[in-house]
Design a protein around this nucleic acid. Structure first.
Lengths: 231, 231
DNA sequence: TAAAAACTTCGGCTATAATCGAACTATGAA
DNA sequence: TTCATAGTTCGATTATAGCCGAAGTTTTTA
């Protein structure tokens, strides 16, 4: 009775699947307009507008007005953290067949999460970048060190170009299977693209990803990652 | 699409106010039967039964069967943490009048949370117990040290009796106004009762609490707490 | 000044799910 | 074996809110 804030109010805002789709989109790419969010949630612009009003009123999102455009973003890190916690305790995608089972295993080992690398491989790569002194951990982001600037340059990733983009540069993303953070944001995306280009990883059915023989060698030589650890 | 676990599923389970009431009750006192939870949520036993099935299926609760009784509890610490995160970002109770305003201020300074002390005073007391070497912080609980055993004995609190109770002994509870942990569980409850008995604190309208003149002196002499810090 | 783009508001339709009465199952006590 | 207690299942009712079509508002571009 007026004792504590009512968590079911916030839960209700996250409970609708259309709103959840929009929140999920904003977790990775923030500063999206209503029309883009409507597309991603597969709903009409009118419906999206209503949902977005509710999310802003409920302090889950905030808006930036630029002329006739309105860019939405997650209100603060607590909101992202709350969503991540809910993801951790949510039941994992169902397994019905043997095919599903091996796919589920592959997906835990290495997968894409939105547009960056996740799963055991994602966490392993992030850890290696930290241990080699290329990244530093911050509150919600990673910081590229001087050595890191050199490393990414040699790895053919243009950090300056990434910093220009209207999105997080090197954000932390909670890995639901590993319960650890991995690298997301523009830098996480650039690394994924580069790994595909180099032929170090390749797609499996679904979101899963596999390290190739070339990749095994490359990851060891550049970052000291042994793929045996992937199980 | 089968990428990540669906957090909106879990959010939906927490979104209903009856289910939220049951979860909140179980956050403090766990091992309650369905009939008791129905009472606390102000719903019929049939309705409660349906809700509890959903919560168990969704891995938010687990059950222990003892004969014809079924005792429910929060499934794990992640669930509690997720609820706490949602509480932190939920909008605080509304302020409509000047009366509401001063009440809101009082409630931030010192209040009861279920059956233990919270707000600035709750956090201050918990910190003092730690600084004096009477409590140690663990993952989700506090540990009473040897010095603590002596202190609580002198303070007229029977720790052995508290440990017998079918509930958490010294649990951490996240303070939504302070964004810090305070002491909950059986020990938190016992301290609150003792403070009332000693006349060190007294009730204000609502859930708020006030430190008396005797209390000011007593808290300083026993734990070095200066109530000026309460603002 | 007109037209287009980005978004909001309104109104009606529809689906979901929360609710409880009543009847049922299972365990324990007399 | 009969009664009581604890809880579940079923069915009907009701309320909430998600959805989109249509019409309105505001800002930018032509």
């Amino acid at each position: 009775m007026g004792n504590k804030p009512d968590f079911s109010y916030t839960a209700k805002l996250m409970a609708d699947s259309s709103r959840a789709a929009m929140l999920e989109a904003l977790l990775d790419l923030d500063g999206l307009p209503a029309s883009e969010l409507a597309k991603r949630a597969n709903i009409s612009l009118q419906t999206a507008s209503g949902h977005l009003t509710k999310l802003v009123d409920g302090n889950l999102l905030c808006v930036e007005k630029h002329g006739r455009h309105r860019y939405f973003r997650i209100a603060n890190a607590d909101v992202a953290q709350a969503i991540e916690m809910l993801t951790v305790i949510a039941p994992p995608p169902k397994i019905n067949s043997l095919k599903d089972f091996s796919r589920a295993k592959n997906i835990q080992i290495a997968r894409t999460c939105y547009d960056h690398l996740a799963g055991k491989l994602g966490v392993l790569l992030t850890d290696a970048l930290i241990e080699n002194g290329y990244l530093l951990e911050e509150e919600n982001n990673f910081l590229v060190t001087k050595e890191g600037e050199q490393f990414f340059h040699d790895f053919n990733i243009d950090l300056e170009a990434l910093r220009q983009k209207r999105r997080h540069f090197a954000r932390k993303c909670l890995d639901w299977s590993e319960r650890r953070y991995h690298l997301a944001g523009a830098l996480g995306n650039a690394i994924l693209i580069r790994l595909f280009d180099l032929g170090w990883i390749e797609r499996l059915p679904g979101r899963a990803v596999r390290v190739t023989d070339t990749g095994e060698k490359g990851l060891y030589e550049s970052l000291g990652i042994t793929t045996k650890e992937l199980g």
